[in-house]
Design a protein around this nucleic acid. Structure first.
Lengths: 336, 336
DNA sequence: ACGTTTTCTGAAAACGTTCTCGGGAATCGT
DNA sequence: ACGATTCCCGAGAACGTTTTCAGAAAACGT
């Protein structure tokens, strides 16, 4: 059935040790003719080394794990893609664990990653304070946090400045003439959602404004959640002149709810989000949003992880990537 | 750092064998007190067995692979989700390999899966005739094909009837009064794309119609591809009164192109696709499409795989799941 | 009280690799 | 021609589990 290194050795008339040496690119100290024979045997049998046996013997698996709250969220699937691309370049393969946006799912995923003995982990946690992540560190597994900073752990981190983004977007809307900005929040225990909310509040305060009464509702970062949140908001129609959603997916859900009710965007209500996921530019009107470089976040996180693994000098490095305000057509140019 | 079964054994004052027995649910022949001591030691050390060592010793890894052409395509991410859900229920974990829609990527992924010694594979191949898949069978690895049937292999398969779907949708459009249906094709070597195209041709022939000249263009199942294809089509504007795309993602890309050109759907042009991905119902007008039960396909494929592994009586079973025509608003009710 | 069965547990051999030794053959320097 | 290097390669011990085998201790039947 499956051939082992012994089969190859036998066929080539050498010892397993030699086969291993040939395959692992030990260039020197191998007679060309021997190498030739081994490679031919490998070829003929279609031999592929057993990764699990390799991992057991070498003290590393060559696998890094990425813990994501929701892979079907385009933002994270882009981030993962960034990780994968960089990982491949370094010879790692990636194991994706989806926590389904649930703390229990996250704990399960962490155990799975520990059992798999991954060499490192890139995590965007559901909760900002998951202490179970400490397990990685205590077992000497490199850990890098992407996108969502943790409160209790000082580890390398690749993020954006969510407060600044929230502030930036809100200021933009205020500058356009909007004054009563409804807000659809994200999960309250993620730093991302919290940061954007904080920035929003800051900007309002600067204009001596407050969130309109009853026009702040909670969501869960999904399209459906945004849709439901918007429906709740619409009961207070008139209390606000624009909606800011804590991410694009919810903004799109809101857009759907508005269209359902026949409310024109941006003519009757402004709408904005965060992330600039591909779909944000596919809809009409093109969503005004803040572009978060998800792919680059993943890529940089992987780079940091490699640095951690190589030089285990754990000088904690944080990288904060720049973002860009994307002016779409979902907020009208100016009020007058 | 990482604790082994020996550490646990030592701490509990028993042999590794006993620890293993306790952990693997060998209920009988273990003194309750011993079990107690072992479990406490496991608890205290936070011991988690090494999956790789386990896999090496037992002759199975408990991992099944799924080979998908493009995980960022919502259709496949839904399919994978179906696989995952069912797999978890059977105690399997899944390893996702994305071939990036490229034959070379697929070959690489197959090798990866072979090296990982997965217990089984669910594959939706890029090419209908990839002979490299035979390797799985020759190594005794269970193989189930999902969504895209293969031409050269007789293995368990879960599909829909693409020809029927293409026929069904086309008939629907013809019944609405459309007569000159442009077509955006999918990758020519996938059975899915081919089947839908075939069904489309069948339906046209029944009405003594032909594809409008110059209004058949090729695409690659992506949003961007659909967008570009539509732009090409628009050079022949007037030669057709509706566009059928071989999947929803391309239809959405086309929708974007039409909007860009200020062409109203469905007033000036009809538009339809296949799959009924979530986004098809998020846009305006709601896409007319044929709903393919991606999640169920994944789920059923996993069920078949389990059946294969258990009873290696390889009685090939094919399952063809029903589909449903979803009448949206992207095709006008009737022509008059 | 003495075989016989039933419970419980440990020693040790796998699983498929890699890697450290060490030893034989070839090459080199003189 | 002969010690000293330099090349090449095999034996065998790991890596962390599971599982077979067998043996000791306890329970049982007479």
């Amino acid at each position: 059935m499956g051939f082992t290194i012994k089969d190859v050795a036998e066929r080539a008339g050498v010892s397993p040790a030699t086969v291993s040496r040939v395959l692992n690119g030990q260039q020197r100290y191998i007679r060309p003719e021997t190498r030739e024979r081994v490679l031919r045997a490998v070829q003929e049998l279609g031999y592929l080394p057993d990764r699990r046996a390799q991992a057991l013997r070498r003290r590393r698996t060559g696998v890094i794990g990425v813990l994501t709250p929701d892979i079907s969220n385009p933002f994270f699937s882009l981030l993962v893609r960034g990780v994968e691309h960089e990982a491949r370049a370094h010879g790692y393969s990636v194991l994706i664990c989806d926590s389904q946006n649930a703390p229990e799912g996250e704990d399960r995923a962490i155990d799975a990653l520990l059992r798999e003995r991954v060499d490192g982990v890139i995590v965007t946690s559901v909760r900002a304070d998951n202490t179970k992540l400490l397990k990685f560190l205590s077992k000497g597994i490199a850990l890098v946090v992407a996108d969502r900073p943790l409160t209790h752990l000082d580890v390398p981190t690749v993020t954006v400045d969510n407060v600044r983004d929230g502030y930036k977007l809100t200021k933009h809307l205020l500058a356009l003439g909007y004054e009563r900005l409804a807000f659809i929040q994200g999960p309250p225990d993620t730093a991302t959602a919290l940061g954007r909310w904080t920035g929003y509040l800051q900007a309002l305060r600067e204009h001596d404004l407050e969130p309109p009464k009853g026009a702040v509702v909670s969501g869960d970062f999904t399209f459906e959640g945004g849709y439901r949140a918007a429906k709740r908001l619409l009961r207070r129609l008139g209390a606000f002149d624009a909606i800011v959603a804590a991410n694009d997916l919810m903004a799109l859900g809101a857009l759907y709810a508005l269209r359902e009710r026949g409310i024109a965007v941006p003519d009757e209500l402004g709408l904005a989000g965060f992330d600039d996921i591909p779909m944000a530019s596919w809809v009409h009107p093109r969503l005004t949003t803040v572009a978060i470089p998800a792919y680059r976040i993943g890529k940089e996180a992987m780079k940091l992880l490699c640095a951690c693994v190589r030089t285990d000098a754990d000088k904690v490095r944080h990288r904060v990537l720049p973002t860009r305000l994307v002016v779409g057509e979902s907020c009208r140019p100016s009020r007058r």
